[in-house]
């Protein structure tokens, strides 16, 4: 009998206790951050969407090779000596390779950050932007190269010209060499 009343009292008392706690929370400061209007500060080293600085990229393709999911596609064209532009890198040294195509498929990227670690010129970096959803899968493939199609055509032509020229030069040189050697023999 005593137990019964004790029980009933405990029920009643603990409910009041619980109500006191919830009442406190009712007036406590709210923790919600109203996301698109306010944001939680993202640490600057956060690994979110990648960004490539095409001026810095020297087309070494190390990033494409190390990427565990192979989501980076790099195409390169050699810079030829007859190029009238004499392109330079960000630090003034001559550019050796054009990068006509540099695509990252963010639908595949797992944000491991390996590409940024291997890049010798720090061309590829993580940004803190994580809001880049897209309605299509193609929309998640980002094209970073800054070369126009005309320019790419031009550079390809130059390269082709140069290969022919180089061949000719080489052949000439070989001829000269053989001439020299035959002269020597004679």
């Amino acid at each position: 009998m005593i137990d019964y009343f004790k029980n009933v009292w405990t029920w009643f008392y603990t409910i009041l206790l619980g109500m006191r706690i919830t009442l406190k929370h009712l007036f406590a400061k709210k923790v919600t951050i109203q996301y698109p209007n306010e944001r939680y500060p993202i640490p600057p080293i956060a690994r979110n969407r990648l960004h490539l600085d095409p001026e810095r990229c020297n087309g070494c393709m190390q990033c494409a090779r190390i990427c565990p999911v192979q989501c980076i596609t790099v195409e390169t064209i050699k810079v030829v000596p007859i190029d009238p532009e004499k392109p330079t890198m960000f630090d003034g040294s001559p550019r050796k390779i054009w990068v006509p195509r540099y695509d990252i498929d963010f639908a595949k990227c797992c944000f491991c950050g390996l590409c940024t670690t291997v890049c010798p010129t720090d061309a590829i970096k993580h940004t803190i932007d994580f809001e880049y959803s897209s309605y299509t899968r193609e929309g998640l493939i980002y094209h970073f190269s800054n070369m126009t199609p005309e320019k790419i055509e031009e550079k390809k032509k130059l390269l082709a010209e140069w290969t022919i020229k180089e061949k000719a030069l080489k052949a000439e040189k070989a001829k000269q060499d053989s001439n020299v050697s035959s002269n020597e023999v004679n």
Binding site: H25, K30, Q34
Partner: peptide
């Protein structure tokens, strides 16, 4: 609103 406030949320805004 009350359910949200008790859970320290803002509720519908």
């Amino acid at each position: 609103k009350i359910s949200a406030w008790i859970q320290e949320r803002l509720g519908p805004m």
